[in-house]
């Protein structure tokens, strides 16, 4: 079995992580912010799987399952808050959430 080199996998994960981070910082729509967060979390998961394959150990995949669960929980809470936001302001733009400043 020919493995993908560790560096390539890590580089791909790093790229995904960067895309996610840029998305979180630049997107104004809260749904897209949550999607970008998902990309960030899954890039960490991908890095774990790649590293696990490199060390021929199952721990990386165990960790990936943990991250999957975590991301699902995170989004569940996030979507709940989005519904509250939409009920109150009739928008999903995060600009409405800027009353607190300092």
């Amino acid at each position: 079995m020919s493995l993908i080199p560790l560096e390539h996998g890590i580089a791909l994960a790093g790229l995904l992580f960067a895309i996610g981070l840029v998305g979180v910082m630049t997107r104004r729509n809260i749904v897209f912010v949550l999607m970008s967060l998902e990309i960030m979390l899954n890039s960490a998961g991908l890095a774990f799987v790649v590293a696990g394959a490199h060390h021929a150990s199952a721990e990386g995949q165990v960790m990936f399952l943990m991250i999957l669960t975590l991301a699902a929980a995170e989004v569940a809470v996030g979507l709940g808050l989005i519904i509250q936001l939409y009920r109150r302001f009739k928008t999903t733009d995060i600009e409405v959430l800027s009353a607190l400043k300092g």
Partner: peptide, 27 residues
């Protein structure tokens, strides 16, 4: 609501960053 959103987004970014760091250490 605003406080919760800010904490959720930034805390999740921090968690993802930490997880990615752990993945690099593990690799």
């Amino acid at each position: 609501l605003e406080a919760a959103f800010k904490y959720l987004v930034l805390s999740a970014v921090a968690s993802a960053t930490m997880l990615f760091g752990m993945a690099l250490i593990y690799s």
